[in-house]
Simulated assay, not measured.
Amino acid sequence: MRTEVVSEPGHRDRPNEDFASVGLPAFGQGGCLVVLDGVTPPRTGTGCSHSVSWFTTRLGGALTELTVSCPDLTLPEILSRAILRTAEPHAATCDLSHPRTPQSTVVLARWSAETVDYLVLSDSVLLLESADGSVIPVLDDRLARLPRASLATDALIDAVVRNKEGGFFTAAADPSVAERAVTGSVPRHEVRALAALTDGAARWVEKFREGDWVRCVGLVRKEGARALVERVRALEAADKEERTYLRRSKTHDDATVVFVEP
């Protein structure tokens, strides 16, 4: 088995709000990967005394432990339980109903000798590479499909589309959001490798258009996960002034890549 985990903050003087892990159960069969991209909080506050990195660390830890130790649970059930477990320690001290309570995207995959199960919530990406080199991207593209007018301001996003029907969903404090995730299962023999990327790493494809998902997985396979992040950083630096591709996006974002050949 080959595994690689690379996670780099967008800025060295700010905490990395991403989370990444690979879990391998002691009985030696199968495993899991978890990738979270914490939603950067607004300056106006979140109703919570805890940071986004505090949240992603605890949610990611709960997801890893539950996915490895509870093979009888579905991935939506695991996400639901992990959200509840993460909410409990600060439910009495923080306003978890606040639209910007700490939250994150989720990529969760679990493989056994028979199947590969997956769950994706919001705009991180899971890539399933087949033996013939083709790649199936698992995407939750609800945010990308929203009209730009609904994303004009943070206040409008929170009021109209964030964790709202007809909008997009993230993992925050409501366990029912697990049922909104994109899920599926494929036979294990059809998957040669898995790659999970937060949107900071997926920029290589989605924002800078340097290649498609097949080329992206090929790059990671040949040169390693860090090579993809380094290429994204070089592209960001080159576009810092003109902003032809970055436009209004932050120049550097937290970037995480997990690559597994199970």
Rank of each mutant, 00 (worst) to 15 (best):
E114F: 10
T115E: 15
V68F: 07
L79C: 06
P41V: 03
R58T: 08
D95H: 04
S124P: 09
V34I: 05
W111K: 13
P41G: 01
S104C: 08
S53H: 10
V116E: 10
L73Q: 15
S80L: 14
T93A: 01
A109Y: 01
V39C: 04
A92I: 10
V116F: 07
P102G: 00
R110S: 05
T74F: 11
L33W: 02
L108F: 03
G60N: 11
W111M: 13
E65V: 12
E77Y: 12
A92P: 06
L33G: 00
E88D: 15
L66I: 12
G60D: 11
P99A: 03
H50N: 07
D95Q: 03
D123C: 09
S69K: 13
L66P: 02
D117R: 15
C32T: 07
S80A: 15
V35P: 03
G31I: 05
V39I: 10
P41K: 03
I83G: 00
P42Y: 11
E77S: 15
S69A: 15
G38A: 01
T74A: 14
D117I: 11
R100Y: 11
S122M: 11
V125E: 13
E65Y: 08
Y118C: 12
V107T: 09
V120T: 13
S69V: 09
V68P: 06
S49A: 14
L33S: 01
G47D: 02
D37E: 07
R43K: 12
S122Y: 13
L108D: 01
W111T: 13
G31S: 04
L119Y: 05
I78P: 00
Y118M: 14
T57M: 09
L36A: 04
L66Y: 09
E114R: 15
V35Y: 01
V107W: 03
G61N: 11
P76V: 14
F55R: 07
L59K: 02
S51C: 06
T46D: 05
T86P: 07
T105G: 02
T101H: 07
Q103S: 14
V68H: 06
G30D: 08
T93P: 01
T67M: 12
S122F: 13
V68T: 13
P89V: 02
A26H: 05
G61P: 12
G38E: 01
P42A: 07
A62Y: 10
Q103E: 09
G38W: 00
R43L: 14
V52N: 02
G61K: 06
V116K: 09
L119G: 02
L63E: 09
T56K: 08
L119Q: 07
V116S: 08
L119M: 13
Q29H: 13
V116H: 07
F55Q: 11
T101E: 04
F55A: 08
V106C: 01
L96A: 07
S122I: 09
